[in-house]
Amino acid sequence: MLPGLPTPAGEVQLRTCQARRVSESVGTDLSATLRRIERAAGALATASVARMDDTLPWFRDLPADQRSWVMVVAQAGARSLVQWLRSDGGPHEGTQEVSDEVFATAPQALARSITLQQTVALIKVTIDVVEEQVDDLAAPGEAAQLREAVLRYSREIAFAAARVYARAAESRGSWDARLQALLVDALLRGDSPDVLASRAAALGWTDAPPVAVAVGPSPGGEVAAVLHTVYRQARRVGVEVIGGVHGDRLVIVLGGAADPVAATAELLSAFGDGPVVVGPSVPSLDEATESARAALAGYRAAPA
């Protein structure tokens, strides 16, 4: 070992101390850098959108209004980075709220037209643009701190995007469950074809003939979990379904099944214990009330 060089143990300790100093320096005063980022927010957003246009083919196909909203979100992201840095970029109580506000600037329709995977791609492009300009954005001596802070912020903003899409999915799932329950009620009451058609259209139902209704016992538990099982199995079978829990009964509308009885047999695990009755096939959902009445009558008579 040459004089003046650290021993292996001392080298590890030295690197640990250096890493600790770098990590702690992220929370130091970056007021000069923050002012630079605030002034460059518009330019960063413009450069990010231009990069998206160059590297993401699907982004070029978006309507002009949605592209403009992406620009607004990118500008909000730059402002949120400043706010996050002012809070030391740490796990403070307001960190999550600041990050979520980035996406609150855009309408909910944008989340329905841009998938989570596409949103992650947009975030990555924006972070890449910011990282490339760290040396210009950072005040003298603060480039390393800013670069590490941007990396940590990218993690926070990715989690924020996941939270936004998770809440949207939960809300959409609850709304779809209510619509399906209303459609099932309309079928069992024998409402007019216009009512059935309007509620089915709101659910995105593809009227694939023939259509049949199956009635059986509900397995119990959360309605959303019951319907999730129905849809998962229906995708495997390759049929269109709308389901709803009506009291202690599970009612399923099947579309596009050449043999509704055989298709229902593939879905039996979604029902509870007891008889499952399939009504006769009808040409379309408009006439599904007849199938529902027959299936319900058979279900009531089955115990006898």
Results as ranks from 00 to 15, higher is better:
149 A>L: 15
149 A>C: 14
149 A>N: 14
150 V>E: 02
151 L>K: 11
151 L>T: 09
152 R>T: 11
152 R>M: 12
152 R>N: 12
152 R>I: 12
152 R>C: 11
152 R>K: 14
153 Y>S: 08
153 Y>P: 07
153 Y>T: 04
154 S>I: 05
154 S>G: 15
154 S>R: 08
155 R>H: 14
155 R>I: 12
155 R>L: 12
155 R>Y: 13
156 E>W: 08
156 E>L: 15
156 E>Y: 13
156 E>Q: 15
157 I>L: 07
157 I>V: 12
158 A>E: 05
158 A>Y: 05
158 A>F: 09
158 A>R: 09
159 F>N: 05
159 F>T: 07
159 F>Y: 09
159 F>V: 07
160 A>H: 04
160 A>Y: 10
161 A>W: 01
161 A>Q: 01
162 A>N: 13
163 R>W: 06
163 R>K: 10
163 R>H: 08
163 R>C: 05
164 V>F: 03
164 V>K: 03
164 V>S: 05
164 V>Q: 03
164 V>G: 03
165 Y>C: 05
165 Y>F: 08
165 Y>A: 06
165 Y>G: 02
167 R>S: 08
167 R>C: 03
167 R>N: 09
167 R>G: 06
167 R>H: 10
169 A>D: 13
169 A>K: 10
169 A>Q: 13
170 E>G: 06
170 E>I: 07
171 S>H: 10
171 S>K: 11
171 S>P: 02
172 R>S: 12
172 R>K: 14
173 G>A: 15
173 G>H: 11
173 G>Q: 13
173 G>D: 15
174 S>H: 09
174 S>W: 05
175 W>V: 10
175 W>F: 13
175 W>K: 09
176 D>V: 06
176 D>N: 09
176 D>L: 02
177 A>C: 13
178 R>E: 11
178 R>L: 15
178 R>T: 15
178 R>C: 11
178 R>W: 08
178 R>S: 14
178 R>N: 08
178 R>P: 05
179 L>T: 07
179 L>V: 10
179 L>W: 06
179 L>G: 02
180 Q>L: 03
180 Q>I: 00
181 A>E: 07
182 L>W: 05
183 L>Y: 09
183 L>M: 11
184 V>P: 01
184 V>G: 00
184 V>C: 04
184 V>D: 00
184 V>Q: 01
184 V>S: 01
185 D>H: 07
185 D>M: 04
185 D>T: 07
186 A>S: 09
186 A>F: 02
187 L>P: 00
187 L>N: 00
187 L>R: 00
187 L>K: 01
187 L>Q: 02
188 L>V: 03
188 L>T: 00
189 R>G: 05
189 R>S: 08
189 R>M: 11
189 R>L: 11
189 R>W: 06
189 R>E: 12
190 G>H: 00
190 G>L: 04
190 G>M: 02
190 G>F: 02
191 D>R: 01
191 D>W: 01
192 S>F: 12
192 S>W: 13
193 P>A: 02
193 P>M: 01
193 P>L: 02
193 P>N: 04
193 P>Q: 06
194 D>W: 11
194 D>C: 13
194 D>I: 09
